[in-house]
């Protein structure tokens, strides 16, 4: 009934290609590498780099679900506590005579359950905000960890368990292998599948998503459960690397994770940002921390850097997202005025 032709071919333009935040992160990585290798001649040596990588990758697993959560305009600050609780459960079970393999499975289950509980509360009581729910469970989960182990530590794991934290697959750290595989998986999941598309939809306009038949509750439940599961995986690697665990492990991991996600270009207003950016940001922050370690900046000082980095990246991302806003606002007003 119409003669209008609507194009469905998007032309590739170099400008759009290079205007991606990810290039900025790659540039940052290059700068950090250059500075690091100038500070220490040993930095660009293979073992040095893999060593560095192994120390910061454990928490990076939580970045994957956190990206999804923040794209959906939610937040989860209980992930550090979830990791601690999963780790404690695993160690306690093993010390009580349960086979290590089953203890590991239990660890994963506990993590997933913690995440599921967060998601369940949010779905069941829609007027609750993720801030308050995960803040409560953040205290609760770590509190339970303390109830179980009090001020003791647990460890003495079988030798093979240390493989998670220290092992290599053909010269590449096992943790890095798993991270890369999962990263590819999650990048594809978020950018190429229907689930990913729906996550963006929910973050951009939750109401319209629901009216379009997107199962918002199911997705929320899934993503929060995933956050718990990934926190448990973090717990396994962390516990393996340290050889023992205490209730205060993974303290403030949520901060590092949120900082990585924010630097990765995921906007806190929802619906914007890519998984790849967050994956790159993991390495930017990781090597930055390592570099600061090289010039003997004490660990506690890193706190300042991470804190400020978080605020700066959120500001920059907000600015990037809202820069186009005036134009959008004008359109919106116009539409309103017609009505």
């Amino acid at each position: 009934m119409s003669t209008r032709i609507v194009s469905n071919i998007q032309k590739f333009t170099w400008k759009r290609f290079f205007l991606q935040w990810e290039w900025m992160l790659i540039a940052l990585l290059v700068i950090i590498f250059t500075i690091n290798s100038n500070i220490s001649p040993y930095f660009l040596n293979y073992t040095s780099i893999t060593d560095a990588t192994m120390t910061f990758l454990d928490k990076a697993f939580i970045v994957f679900p956190m990206v999804m959560i923040m794209i959906m305009r939610e937040i989860d600050i209980s992930v550090g506590s979830t990791a601690a609780l999963s780790s404690i459960v695993m160690a306690t079970l093993y010390n009580a005579g349960v086979p290590m393999v089953i203890a590991i499975v239990a660890c994963l289950l506990v993590g997933a359950l913690c995440g599921f509980f967060n998601g369940y509360l949010l779905v069941k009581y829609r007027e609750l905000s993720a801030v308050i729910v995960t803040l409560s469970t953040m205290i609760l989960y770590r509190g339970i960890a303390y109830m179980i182990l009090e001020d003791r530590s647990a460890g003495d794991f079988p030798d093979w368990f240390s493989y998670f934290g220290w092992g290599y697959v053909g010269g590449i750290p096992f943790i890095l292998c798993l991270f890369v595989v999962l990263a590819i998986g999650f990048v594809l999941l978020l950018q190429k599948t229907t689930i990913g598309r729906r996550i963006y939809a929910v973050g951009s306009n939750p109401k319209a998503s629901r009216f379009s038949g997107v199962k918002v509750d199911k997705i929320k439940l899934l993503v929060f459960t995933l956050a718990g599961l990934m926190a448990a995986i973090t717990a396994i690697f962390l516990t393996s690397r340290m050889g023992s665990t205490r209730p205060n492990v993974a303290n403030m991991y949520e901060l590092d994770v949120i900082a990585m996600v924010a630097l990765g270009g995921i906007s806190t207003v929802g619906g914007k940002g890519k998984m790849l950016g967050a994956v790159l940001a993991v390495f930017v922050i990781g090597y930055l921390q390592f570099g600061l370690g090289l010039i003997n900046i004490p660990a506690q000082m890193l706190l300042i850097v991470i804190g400020i980095l978080l605020i700066v990246s959120v500001t920059v991302t907000n600015f990037r997202v809202t820069r186009k806003a005036p134009q959008r606002k004008a359109k919106k007003n116009q539409a309103k005025k017609v009505s």
Binding site: A259, A262, T268, Q300, L303, I304, I306, G307, I311, V314
Partner: peptide, 13 residues
Amino acid sequence: IIASLGLMNAFRG
């Protein structure tokens, strides 16, 4: 929540 989380670390540091 994000601003105060960042500052919490900065002040602690």
